[in-house]
Amino acid sequence: MGFKLLSKLLVYLTASIMAIASPLAFSVDSSGEYPTVSEIPVGEVRLYQIADGVWSHIATQSFDGAVYPSNGLIVRDGDELLLIDTAWGAKNTAALLAEIEKQIGLPVTRAVSTHFHDDRVGGVDVLRAAGVATYASPSTRRLAEVEGNEIPTHSLEGLSSSGDAVRFGPVELFYPGAAHSTDNLIVYVPSASVLYGGCAIYELSRTSAGNVADADLAEWPTSIERIQQHYPEAQFVIPGHGLPGGLDLLKHTTNVVKAHTNRSVVE
């Protein structure tokens, strides 16, 4: 069995187990497998329904001669939608809004960016022009300005110390501490036991640490421990890039980060 097929099978099995364990909360999309990078042309966006009122959005972007996937989250909030992270750029984010209108038909009224990198804030200006209120932590807003990236308009308070959590509509926002970046936030959907790890969490097929220019490698494993301790009931975990899975993604990420750190020390 090929690795790609095995990865998709694991996603399907995880979703099936969740649907059985929580039949009222989960209505997993039966329309197909989780979209992969090879299936999404740059400039297009796919939506994948995880649970009743919960979707991931998947886009792709060219970077350094390669094409990478990027995940975000959409959560229903009454007759409105909360968006977590842009679709990595203005063109993708405009396509995301169009796809949401086509498939869901509810307005996106608020959006949260989970850290300051372009795959999370690139497209904020498109959201703002569409009347979406954009939010991020003060740290993310400051770092985005320093980096020359787009800056969300509103500040999220109460997320300055490791372990801080605040309720934001249908989700809980959690600051686990520094990891992929010093400002990275985690998003949890309690009604569906869905954990969105953003770039602080890796997919299972990833074996290298990737972009760690703004990471705190020493603190990252401790931050992941905080996530595990705060959300032990999480059933569906979405990484910032690639295929979702279960809580095993947290341990896998820790292993990859520690291996990278150990290699760096040896070198």
Results as ranks from 00 to 15, higher is better:
Leu247Gly: 09
Ile104Phe: 07
Leu6His: 08
Lys91Arg: 15
Ile186Lys: 01
Leu195Trp: 01
Ile238Trp: 01
Tyr68Met: 08
Arg128Phe: 08
Ala234Phe: 03
Leu47His: 06
Val124Ser: 08
Lys251Asp: 14
Val171Gln: 02
Leu96Arg: 00
Gly177Glu: 01
Gly177Leu: 02
Ser160Val: 12
Val256Met: 06
Tyr196Glu: 01
Tyr135Gly: 01
Ile17Lys: 13
Glu219Ala: 13
Val124Trp: 03
Ala15Pro: 14
Ser139Lys: 12
Arg167Ser: 11
Arg226His: 08
Val126Glu: 07
Asp183Ala: 01
Ser62Ala: 11
Ser208Asn: 15
Pro69Asp: 15
Val54Asp: 04
Ala130Pro: 06
Ala136Ile: 03
Trp88Leu: 00
Lys91Glu: 15
Gln235Trp: 08
His115Glu: 00
Ser208Arg: 09
Trp55His: 03
Thr134Ser: 06
Thr253Val: 00
Tyr34Ala: 08
Ile20Gly: 15
Thr182Lys: 13
Gln229Lys: 14
Lys251Glu: 12
Arg226Leu: 09
Ile224Asp: 01
Ser62Asp: 10
Pro138Tyr: 10
Ser56Asp: 09
Leu106Met: 14
Pro239Trp: 00
Ala59Phe: 04
Lys91Tyr: 09
Glu44Asn: 13
Leu97Thr: 04
His260Val: 12
Pro69Met: 15
Leu173Pro: 08
Ile40Met: 15
Val126Thr: 09
Ala179Gly: 10
Glu147Cys: 07
Val265Asp: 12
Lys4His: 05
Lys102Arg: 13
Leu9Ser: 12
Leu10Thr: 15
Ala95Pro: 03
Leu24Gly: 10
Tyr34Ile: 09
Val187Lys: 01
Tyr34Leu: 09
Ser22Trp: 15
Gly72His: 01
Leu243Phe: 11
His117Tyr: 04
Ile151Ala: 06
Gly245His: 02
Tyr231Asp: 01
Ala66Asn: 15
Glu225Ser: 11
Leu127Val: 03
Gly43Glu: 08
Asn262Ser: 12
Asn92Glu: 04
Ser160Asp: 14
Arg76Gln: 11
Gly197Phe: 02
Gly177Pro: 01
Gly148Lys: 09
Leu143Val: 03
Val124Ala: 08
Leu156Ile: 10
Ala59Asp: 05
Thr153Gln: 14
Ser160His: 12
Asp248Phe: 08
Asp85Leu: 00
Phe3Gln: 06
Val108Arg: 03
Glu203Thr: 05
Gly78Asp: 14
Val108Phe: 02
Trp220Ser: 01
His117Met: 00
Pro41Ile: 08
Phe236Lys: 11
Leu127Arg: 02
Glu157Ser: 12
Ser113Gly: 05
Pro152Cys: 01
Ala129Trp: 08
Ile58Thr: 15
Thr114Gln: 00
Val212Met: 09
Lys102Ile: 13
Val75Met: 05
Gln49Lys: 13
Val67His: 15
Met1Ser: 03
Thr254Gln: 11
Lys102Ser: 13
Ile186Gln: 02
Asn211Asp: 13
Ala209Val: 10
Ser208Phe: 09
His252Thr: 02
Ser155Tyr: 07
Ile40Asn: 06
Arg167Cys: 07
Lys258Tyr: 09
Gly105Val: 07
Val126Phe: 12
Asp216Ile: 07
Ser70Lys: 02
Gly148His: 10
Ser56Ala: 15
Arg206Ile: 10
Asp125Thr: 09
Ile227Asn: 07
Val257Leu: 12
Ser162Ala: 15
Val121Asn: 04
Pro221Gln: 09
Leu10Tyr: 15
His154Phe: 14
Pro69Thr: 15
Ala130Gly: 09
Ala213Cys: 08
Ala51Arg: 08
Val28Met: 15
Lys251Asn: 12
Tyr175Leu: 00
Gly131Cys: 05
Glu145Asn: 11
Gly240Asp: 05
Leu73Gly: 05
Asp64Asn: 13
Phe174Cys: 03
Ile58Pro: 00
Leu5Ser: 15
Leu127Lys: 02
Ala59Leu: 05
Ser7Glu: 10
Tyr12His: 10
His154Lys: 07
Leu106Cys: 06
Ala165Arg: 14
His117Cys: 00
Ser70Gln: 03
Asp164His: 09
Tyr196Val: 00
Gln49Leu: 10
Ile238Tyr: 02
Leu217Arg: 04
Lys258Pro: 05
Asn255Gln: 12
Ala144Asp: 02
Asp77Leu: 02
Ala21Asn: 14
Glu101Lys: 14
Ile74Pro: 02
Ala90Gln: 11
Ile50Gly: 02
Leu143Trp: 06
Leu83Glu: 00
Tyr12Pro: 05
Gly245Glu: 02
Gly245Val: 03
Leu143Glu: 03
Phe63Arg: 08
His260Gln: 12
Leu243Thr: 15
Val237Glu: 00
Ala179Asp: 04
Lys258Val: 11
Phe3Thr: 10
Glu172Trp: 02
Val42Ile: 07
Val189Gly: 01
Ala218Asp: 13
Val112Thr: 03
Ile151Val: 13
Ala179Met: 06
Gln235Tyr: 08
Asp52Ser: 12
Glu80Trp: 05
Glu219Phe: 06
Asp85Ala: 01
Asp79Glu: 12
Tyr48Gly: 07
Pro23Asn: 10
Pro176Leu: 04
Ile20Val: 14
Tyr135Ala: 01
Leu13Phe: 14
His117Phe: 00
Leu127Thr: 01
Tyr188Asn: 04
His154Glu: 10
Gly163Trp: 04
Leu6Trp: 10
Glu101Ser: 13
Glu267Met: 10
Thr114Val: 01
Trp220Asp: 02
Arg110Gly: 08
Asp79Asn: 13
Ser193Tyr: 14
Thr153His: 09
Leu106Ala: 10
Val266Cys: 05
Asp214His: 09
Tyr135Cys: 05
Arg110Phe: 04
Gln229Arg: 13
Ala165Pro: 08
Ser22Met: 14
Ile84Gly: 02
Gln61Asn: 07
Gly240Trp: 04
Ala218Cys: 06
Glu225Ala: 13
Val189Cys: 02
His117Leu: 02
Arg120Glu: 02
Leu156Gly: 02
Ala144Gly: 04
Leu24Arg: 11
Pro23Phe: 09
Ala218His: 13
His260Pro: 10
Arg110Met: 08
Asp77Tyr: 06
Ala51Gln: 08
Arg142Gln: 13
Gly148Asp: 06
Gly246Tyr: 05
Leu83Ser: 02
Ile201Trp: 02
Arg226Cys: 01
Asp64Tyr: 14
Pro176Cys: 00
Asn184Gln: 00
Ile84Cys: 03
Ser27Tyr: 10
Leu173Met: 05
Leu247Thr: 14
Glu39Gln: 12
Trp220Pro: 02
Ser205Lys: 10
Ser162Leu: 10
Gly122Arg: 07
Gly169Trp: 04
